[in-house]
Computed example of a mutant assay.
Amino acid sequence: MPTQRVLITEDAKKVMNEVREKHGELMFHQSGGCCDGSSPMCYKKGQFRTGKSDIKLGEVNGAEFWMAKDQFKYWQYMQLTLDVKPGRGSSFSLEIPMGVRFLIKSKMFTEEQLEDLEELVSG
Protein backbone atom coordinates (compact mmCIF):
# COMPACT_ATOMS: atom_id res chain seq x y z
CA MET A 1 0.00 0.00 0.00
CA PRO A 2 1.46 3.41 -0.95
CA THR A 3 2.40 5.99 1.67
CA GLN A 4 -0.51 8.35 2.28
CA ARG A 5 0.09 12.06 1.80
CA VAL A 6 -2.69 13.07 4.21
CA LEU A 7 -3.62 11.46 7.53
CA ILE A 8 -6.28 12.41 10.11
CA THR A 9 -6.41 12.34 13.91
CA GLU A 10 -9.23 10.69 15.86
CA ASP A 11 -10.36 14.10 17.17
CA ALA A 12 -10.62 15.46 13.63
CA LYS A 13 -12.59 12.36 12.57
CA LYS A 14 -15.12 13.00 15.34
CA VAL A 15 -15.62 16.62 14.26
CA MET A 16 -15.84 15.56 10.61
CA ASN A 17 -18.50 13.00 11.44
CA GLU A 18 -20.58 15.64 13.24
CA VAL A 19 -20.23 18.04 10.31
CA ARG A 20 -21.12 15.24 7.87
CA GLU A 21 -24.33 14.48 9.83
CA LYS A 22 -25.43 18.06 9.35
CA HIS A 23 -24.16 18.78 5.81
CA GLY A 24 -23.72 15.44 4.02
CA GLU A 25 -20.61 14.36 2.13
CA LEU A 26 -17.56 16.56 2.64
CA MET A 27 -14.36 17.68 0.94
CA PHE A 28 -11.30 19.67 2.01
CA HIS A 29 -9.31 22.29 0.16
CA GLN A 30 -6.14 23.97 1.31
CA SER A 31 -5.01 27.10 -0.46
CA GLY A 32 -2.61 29.84 0.42
CA GLY A 33 -5.36 32.41 0.12
CA CYS A 34 -7.30 34.67 2.41
CA CYS A 35 -8.99 34.19 5.75
CA ASP A 36 -7.03 31.58 7.68
CA GLY A 37 -4.22 31.54 5.14
CA SER A 38 -3.23 27.99 4.44
CA SER A 39 -5.66 26.34 6.85
CA PRO A 40 -7.65 23.43 5.46
CA MET A 41 -11.22 24.41 4.63
CA CYS A 42 -14.05 21.90 4.99
CA TYR A 43 -16.87 22.20 2.45
CA LYS A 44 -19.93 20.24 1.47
CA LYS A 45 -18.73 17.98 -1.37
CA GLY A 46 -18.94 19.90 -4.64
CA GLN A 47 -19.44 23.28 -2.93
CA PHE A 48 -15.86 24.26 -3.72
CA ARG A 49 -15.07 23.89 -7.39
CA THR A 50 -11.64 22.45 -8.02
CA GLY A 51 -9.84 23.13 -11.27
CA LYS A 52 -6.57 22.83 -13.13
CA SER A 53 -4.78 24.73 -10.38
CA ASP A 54 -5.69 22.10 -7.75
CA ILE A 55 -4.29 18.67 -6.87
CA LYS A 56 -6.07 15.89 -4.99
CA LEU A 57 -3.62 14.61 -2.39
CA GLY A 58 -5.82 11.78 -1.16
CA GLU A 59 -8.79 11.16 1.11
CA VAL A 60 -9.32 11.47 4.85
CA ASN A 61 -12.21 9.76 6.58
CA GLY A 62 -14.02 9.40 3.24
CA ALA A 63 -13.52 13.01 2.10
CA GLU A 64 -11.29 14.19 -0.75
CA PHE A 65 -8.40 16.45 0.27
CA TRP A 66 -7.35 19.01 -2.37
CA MET A 67 -4.57 21.57 -2.39
CA ALA A 68 -3.70 24.46 -4.67
CA LYS A 69 -0.71 23.55 -6.87
CA ASP A 70 1.26 26.59 -5.74
CA GLN A 71 0.84 25.50 -2.10
CA PHE A 72 1.81 21.94 -2.98
CA LYS A 73 5.24 23.17 -4.06
CA TYR A 74 5.90 24.00 -0.40
CA TRP A 75 4.25 20.89 1.09
CA GLN A 76 5.26 18.17 -1.40
CA TYR A 77 7.94 16.65 0.84
CA MET A 78 5.74 16.49 3.93
CA GLN A 79 3.10 14.13 5.20
CA LEU A 80 0.13 16.17 6.39
CA THR A 81 -2.10 15.29 9.32
CA LEU A 82 -5.51 16.90 9.59
CA ASP A 83 -6.23 17.78 13.21
CA VAL A 84 -8.67 20.01 15.08
CA LYS A 85 -8.35 22.45 17.98
CA PRO A 86 -10.70 24.67 19.97
CA GLY A 87 -11.17 28.20 18.74
CA ARG A 88 -12.81 30.00 15.88
CA GLY A 89 -10.98 30.52 12.67
CA SER A 90 -11.87 33.33 10.29
CA SER A 91 -12.88 31.13 7.40
CA PHE A 92 -15.93 29.73 5.67
CA SER A 93 -15.11 26.20 6.78
CA LEU A 94 -18.12 24.19 8.00
CA GLU A 95 -16.72 23.37 11.47
CA ILE A 96 -16.29 27.02 12.51
CA PRO A 97 -19.78 27.39 14.13
CA MET A 98 -18.88 24.45 16.40
CA GLY A 99 -16.17 26.53 18.09
CA VAL A 100 -13.33 24.44 16.63
CA ARG A 101 -11.13 24.67 13.58
CA PHE A 102 -9.24 22.21 11.42
CA LEU A 103 -5.50 22.64 11.09
CA ILE A 104 -2.59 20.84 9.47
CA LYS A 105 0.39 19.31 11.21
CA SER A 106 3.26 18.18 9.04
CA LYS A 107 6.37 16.05 9.10
CA MET A 108 8.99 15.38 6.45
CA PHE A 109 8.67 12.15 4.51
CA THR A 110 11.48 9.66 4.93
CA GLU A 111 13.40 8.71 1.78
CA GLU A 112 11.60 5.35 1.78
CA GLN A 113 8.19 7.05 1.98
CA LEU A 114 9.08 9.43 -0.87
CA GLU A 115 9.73 6.43 -3.10
CA ASP A 116 6.30 4.95 -2.37
CA LEU A 117 3.86 7.89 -2.33
CA GLU A 118 0.19 7.85 -3.28
CA GLU A 119 -0.49 9.09 -6.81
CA LEU A 120 -1.65 12.69 -7.23
CA VAL A 121 -4.77 13.60 -9.19
CA SER A 122 -5.09 16.97 -10.94
CA GLY A 123 -8.38 18.88 -10.88
Rank of each mutant, 00 (worst) to 15 (best):
P40K: 08
S38V: 05
F48A: 11
A12M: 08
L7C: 06
E95M: 05
C42G: 11
Y77E: 14
C34G: 15
L114E: 07
K13M: 02
D116F: 02
L57G: 00
V60D: 04
S93L: 01
E118A: 12
F72P: 02
K52F: 04
A63W: 04
L80V: 07
D36K: 07
Q76R: 14
K85E: 14
G99C: 11
E118Y: 03
S53V: 12
F48Q: 08
K105R: 15
G87T: 13
K107R: 15
H29W: 05
W75A: 14
Q30D: 03
P86W: 02
L80R: 06
I8P: 00
Q4K: 15
S53T: 15
T50P: 04
G46N: 14
V15Q: 06
S38H: 12
R5Q: 06
Y77A: 15
K13L: 00
E95V: 09
K13I: 01
V60C: 12
L82Q: 10
R49V: 12
E64V: 05
V84Y: 04
E115W: 02
M16R: 10
N17D: 14
S39W: 01
V6T: 05
E112I: 08
E64K: 12
G33S: 10
D83C: 12
F102E: 13
E112W: 05
F72M: 03
I96W: 04
K52W: 04
G46V: 12
T81N: 14
I96Q: 12
V121F: 05
L114N: 08
E21T: 09
N17L: 07
K85F: 09
F48L: 10
R20M: 08
A12F: 06
C42E: 10
Q113F: 03
V84P: 01
T9A: 09
Y74F: 12
K45V: 03
K107H: 11
D54A: 06
M98A: 14
G46Y: 11
T3F: 01
S90T: 08
I104H: 15
Q79L: 09
